[in-house]
Each structure stands twice: as structure tokens, then as C-alpha cells.
Computed example of a mutant assay.
Amino acid sequence: MTVAHITGAARGIGKAIALRLAADGHDIAVSDLPAMTEELEKTRAEIEASGVRAVALTGDVTDPESVRRIVEQTAEQLGSLDVMVANAGIAQTKALLDVTPDEYDLVHRVNGKGLFLCYTEAARQMIKQGRGGKIIGASSIAGHKGFGLLGVYSSSKFGVRALTQAAAQEWAEHGITVNAYCPGIVDTQMWVEVDRDLGAINDMAEGESMKAMAAGITLGRVSQGSDVAAFVSYLAGPDSDYMTGQSPLIDGGMLFV
């Protein structure tokens, strides 16, 4: 039985990934911030109901000791760490001239440093175990194209792609593959907040910003968490063993690169 850990799994895409990997037969560790404990426990209970083992851990991906602890606890409580999904992240919708240095640092601390810590601690554990593993990170459509009013977020997600490529090269000798997933517009709380903030900037009613952006989706709808989770299922399984260093778009046809 393989063990997968998903960060930022109390809700949204992270929860969808955790449930999908549980359905695939992985034992699951889910983690999120202490403030999300109640929702995280509900996710853990749903996972256990599917018939696999599950643990819920709280921590902050921006803190090295916290990340080290949740990785160690995963291996101690479930026996190993075979798949690491560094999903936790935050968005920011703001004109670049209005972004403060502290706001810039926060986005990069969570989306950049947090992913770096999850990647490296997971790699150390997998190398110690000696049988390889799968490391998977959250990038974005904004990691392939910089978007106005999402400039700092975009820059952080471009960084995920670069780190994923470098890690794939460094850890291949240990049998570890490293890939990322790049969602477009997903029907989650994060996108509700992006829509709200874009609407406030552009004087648009609630839902109108998302509707305008969704008009450019070839498949004609915004994605669900399950759409993204289905691709992560592939990255976490043996069918992707010959794929590494890649960050494919899962956007319904918004960008063609």
C-alpha cells in the first residue's frame, strides 16, 4: 500500500485530490493550517469512509520545522511517504503598483518557499526509504502566462515550474519523479475570492469576472476539483513513471502552448 500526503487539503482542489487518491487505493495524510482543523477532520473522515487509512495533520508550509514534522508524522503513522502533493497555495488579485513588499513576500513565501520545503523534505524521506517516489506540485495556468492583476501570483507559479524542472533533474537518480499540475479556472473558494477582487477593481458584479474569463474556455465550462484530481491521480500512479519535470495545463483549453 502506498502513502500519499496532500497539503492544503481541508477543502477545494486539495480535498478533491485526497479523495481521488484514496479511491485509487492510497493511504492518505492530509494537512492544512490549524485554523482549518474542523474542515480537515471532515476530509479525513470522508477518506476513511472509502476504506483506506487516513491521518489529519496541521502545519504551516512556510515553516521548515512544521513541514519536517508533517512529513515525519506521515511516515511514522502510515509507514512511509510515497507520494507528496504540494498543493497548498494562496492567490492575490491586485495591480502591481498597489502591491506592498510585504504582500509580495507573503505570496512567494506560501507558493514558492512552501512548495520548496514540501519538495525537499519529501525527497529526503523518499531517499531514506530507498524506493523512489512521486513529488507533485501545484502550479497554474498563471505559471504559463502572466495575467494582469494577478502578476505576483503568476510570478510565484512560474517559479513552481522552474523548481519542478530542477528537482526532476536532481532526484531522478533516486527514482523520484517530479511534476506539477496547472489548473485554469476552478470552481473553488479561491476563485470565488479572485472573482470578488477582480469585480471590485473593474466595477463588475459578483460572478461577472469569472464568467468573462470562462468565456475563453474551449470546453465551455469552468473545471471542478475532480477534473484536476483525475490528472494528479495519473501523476501519482505507475502510468506516469516515464514522465518527469513537466507542468501540463489542465484548463479546458484556455491556453495552447
Rank of each mutant, 00 (worst) to 15 (best):
50 S>A: 15
108 H>N: 15
38 E>C: 01
167 A>E: 02
21 L>K: 10
240 S>L: 08
2 T>P: 15
193 E>M: 11
102 D>K: 13
210 M>N: 12
151 G>A: 12
179 N>V: 09
157 K>Y: 10
32 D>C: 09
98 D>A: 13
6 I>C: 04
153 Y>H: 07
254 M>W: 13
69 R>H: 13
171 W>G: 00
77 Q>V: 09
6 I>D: 05
205 A>P: 08
5 H>A: 13
47 I>F: 06
194 V>T: 07
154 S>H: 07
135 I>G: 01
40 L>P: 03
150 L>C: 05
242 Y>K: 10
100 T>P: 07
69 R>L: 04
126 M>S: 06
182 C>H: 09
159 G>M: 11
39 E>V: 05
44 R>G: 00
8 G>D: 12
167 A>D: 02
154 S>G: 11
68 R>P: 00
215 A>I: 04
117 L>V: 08
210 M>D: 03
11 R>H: 12
82 D>K: 05
66 S>K: 10
47 I>Y: 05
160 V>Y: 01
244 T>S: 15
169 Q>D: 12
194 V>K: 00
31 S>D: 09
196 R>S: 10
191 W>M: 13
252 G>K: 05
69 R>A: 14
12 G>M: 04
120 T>Q: 14
252 G>S: 09
85 V>T: 04
104 Y>P: 03
140 S>V: 11
70 I>G: 00
91 A>P: 13
143 G>A: 05
62 T>M: 15
135 I>A: 01
158 F>Y: 15
185 I>Q: 00
15 K>W: 01
39 E>D: 14
217 I>P: 01
147 F>G: 00
192 V>S: 13
139 S>R: 03
11 R>A: 14
232 V>N: 04
36 M>K: 14
78 L>A: 04
119 Y>K: 01
14 G>W: 04
158 F>E: 06
152 V>R: 00
48 E>Q: 14
142 A>C: 14
105 D>T: 14
9 A>W: 04
142 A>D: 13
253 G>H: 11
2 T>W: 05
152 V>D: 11
25 G>D: 12
146 G>W: 06
234 Y>D: 02
178 V>S: 05
22 A>D: 12
137 G>S: 12
155 S>R: 08
190 M>S: 11
184 G>Q: 08
13 I>D: 03
247 S>T: 14
129 Q>T: 07
101 P>H: 10
37 T>Q: 14
175 G>I: 08
89 G>S: 11
108 H>V: 06
149 L>P: 00
87 N>R: 00
245 G>Y: 10
142 A>Y: 02
138 A>E: 06
139 S>I: 11
46 E>I: 06
55 V>W: 09
196 R>G: 06
43 T>W: 06
183 P>K: 10
245 G>E: 11
148 G>T: 10
199 G>W: 04
34 P>Y: 13
152 V>A: 07
206 E>C: 01
35 A>G: 15
50 S>D: 10
42 K>E: 15
64 P>G: 04
25 G>S: 09
119 Y>C: 08
3 V>N: 00
15 K>F: 03
37 T>H: 10
180 A>S: 15
22 A>Q: 09
253 G>A: 12
98 D>F: 12
80 S>R: 14
121 E>L: 02
74 T>R: 02
227 D>R: 09
222 V>K: 02
110 V>S: 11
214 A>M: 05
10 A>V: 06
7 T>P: 10
217 I>M: 06
73 Q>L: 14
153 Y>Q: 08
49 A>F: 10
242 Y>E: 07
1 M>I: 12
252 G>H: 09
36 M>S: 15
